[in-house]
Amino acid sequence: MAGSDVGKQSISNRQRMVWIGQTFVVLALVWLALNGLDGWWFGLLAASVGAVVGGLLASGQPHPWRPHRLAGFALFFLVESFKGGIDVAWRAFRPDLPINPEFHRCRLDLPEGQPRTLMVSVISLLPGTLSADLSDDGRELIIHTLMPEAMDSVWRLDARIRHLFSLPAAEAADE
């Protein structure tokens, strides 16, 4: 049961600060990409305002990610999205259409906020899986798969996201 511990207020405030810092860096980099160094002071101002407002308005608990683990996650994501694209292209071009669509239910153990959002978004780009629905309490995800074995990659993604946000590993539960 990671996250949503009320007693750890000081830790959560520190996490919020780290998260604001990370958002600031990302926004400043986006400014740099769009504008270069023209008007850099305005870019810094805009990035600070964006980060602070984002940090204050973010619902729930912000989960800072580990910058050095982002590269590993990005690589995993790139490889998987390549595999996903190639897989679906192969299935589309085959004359006998080798698809076997099914719905799977699976319980989400990831804490609310960025980890869960990232999970739901990235699932749609993994080979053969598509996040089709989320139950109203956000605990159960309905995944549409093109082939039964596609569910394996969902658990690998879960482990990757736990690693990125330094969350404790959980026992996978597929129903």
């Binding site: 996903g84 694209g85 679906v88 589309a92 259409l97 669509p101 749609s124 089709a132 549409h144």
Partner: peptide, 17 residues
């Protein structure tokens, strides 16, 4: 592809690649 969800698979993954 035969159903809406399978078509979504094709579009999101292939087009983004």
């Amino acid at each position: 592809f035969g159903d809406v969800h399978s078509r979504l698979h094709a579009l999101t993954k292939a087009d983004n690649l």
